Amino acid sequence: VADVLATARAAEDARLDFLTHDDSFARPGLDALAVLARIAPATRSVGLVPTVTTTHTEPFHVQAAVATLDWVSRGRAGWRIDVSPGEAEARLFGRRPAPPAAALWQEASETAEVSRRLWDSWEDDAEIRDVATGRFIDRDKLHHVGFEGSAFSVKGPSIVPRPPQGNPVVVVDATRPAARETAARHADVALIRAASPEEAAALRAELHRAARAHGRDPGLLRVLLTVAADLGTHPGGPAALAAQVAGWHGGGAVDGLHFVPAVPGRDLPRFAAEVAGALRDRGLFRTAYEGTTLRDRLGLPRPVSQYAPKGADA
């Protein structure tokens, strides 16, 4: 946890949007969401995005945990959706063999859908907290979601009040084709990998087309290029990486960069000082945090609850 806290503080000092923290049932270690919940009170501005699998987990519990992270971080939570395809992971639970990738991502898509419904199941003003009358909530402002999926059903409402962001930021790695439908339908942030600006632009356009087909505004989908880099051996060093990011972003290929340092303790400070610094000199990177939530950082509006009366303000 100490190493993660140091990384989070370095990311915050560099004024980065958010920190991702990977997790899976296949590796030892602490639960990513629990670690970032511990980190939240020790940070002030950086977004916190744990990986939480939708396989072998209960959707109701997952959404409640992510909503709780949003509360303890005061609106800085995200959720990187992933699946668990391995047979070894399936044997840990003994519930079923590992389904094929398409079925896993269908389940992930349904979990994202029911999570949004549950986050919205408390209207923003559902809490009364009137000590004199002993009334805590307005029951008329809590809603059953009545969701029937292919592998689970949820009645609701949630057990956690509506998160500060309304809906925490949903992140999906859309590198794998099986995940792209989930990204297009549900992601606020899609992560891609590409070898050229042209490839990145094509993937971004594909995601935007699919988002529009699902009735979404593609302008509200942020597409970030994932770059795993060792800044000690990266060709051209940090200056070259900064030039690459500036070129790809300026050409409209991507909306930003998801940097994965080879050695966080070494590469993140170099990224902050040299890459982010060079981008700041070009006017492409903030000098201070704007707003208070992760949605603010990403330029995303706070969604209105789908159960709120029509015309209600977000």
Rank of each mutant, 00 (worst) to 15 (best):
V46P: 02
G219K: 13
S153H: 03
A11P: 04
T20W: 00
R204P: 07
P303C: 12
A253I: 06
V169W: 11
S84P: 00
A184I: 01
R266Q: 15
P97A: 14
S115N: 06
A228V: 12
I159F: 06
A184W: 02
A42K: 14
I128M: 12
H234F: 15
G236Q: 12
T54F: 02
V1S: 08
D313R: 14
V169E: 03
V35P: 04
P235C: 04
A14I: 00
A101C: 00
L142F: 01
V160S: 06
P238A: 11
G299V: 10
F259K: 09
S153T: 08
E206F: 01
I159G: 01
E206T: 12
G232P: 02
V4L: 09
A178R: 10
R139V: 15
G291C: 15
A195E: 14
A213S: 15
A202I: 09
L224H: 14
P197F: 14
R76S: 10
S73D: 07
L279T: 03
A278V: 08
E127N: 10
V66T: 03
F60M: 11
S153G: 03
A26I: 05
R222Q: 15
A262Q: 15
L207C: 13
G86F: 00
K310V: 15
L300D: 14
R116C: 08
R96T: 13
F285L: 14
A278N: 11
R135H: 09
A90I: 10
L257Q: 12
P161H: 06
D217N: 14
R9D: 05
H186A: 01
R44A: 14
E12P: 04
L294R: 11
A213Y: 13
V1Y: 05
F93S: 09
H249S: 04
A10S: 11
H143Q: 11
L16Q: 05
V72A: 10
A102N: 08
A184S: 02
A246L: 06
L284N: 05
S115R: 05
A288Q: 13
D130Q: 08
A11N: 11
A151Y: 10
E12V: 03
Q106Y: 00
W248D: 03
P269K: 07
V62S: 01
L69D: 01
K141V: 06
P41D: 04
G134P: 04
R209V: 15
A101H: 06
A67H: 06
K310N: 08
D125F: 08
A273T: 07
A239H: 15
V154T: 11
A262F: 15
P157D: 12
A10D: 11
E198T: 10
A151P: 07
R295A: 02
G219L: 12
G311K: 09
E107S: 13
P177R: 10
A242G: 12
A205K: 13
G256A: 08
T233H: 13
L203N: 12
T43R: 03
A273H: 11
S84N: 01
E199I: 01
T233Q: 13
L69C: 00
L300G: 14
A42D: 09
A187Q: 06
W79N: 05
A126C: 13
F136W: 14
A272P: 08
K141F: 11
A201W: 13
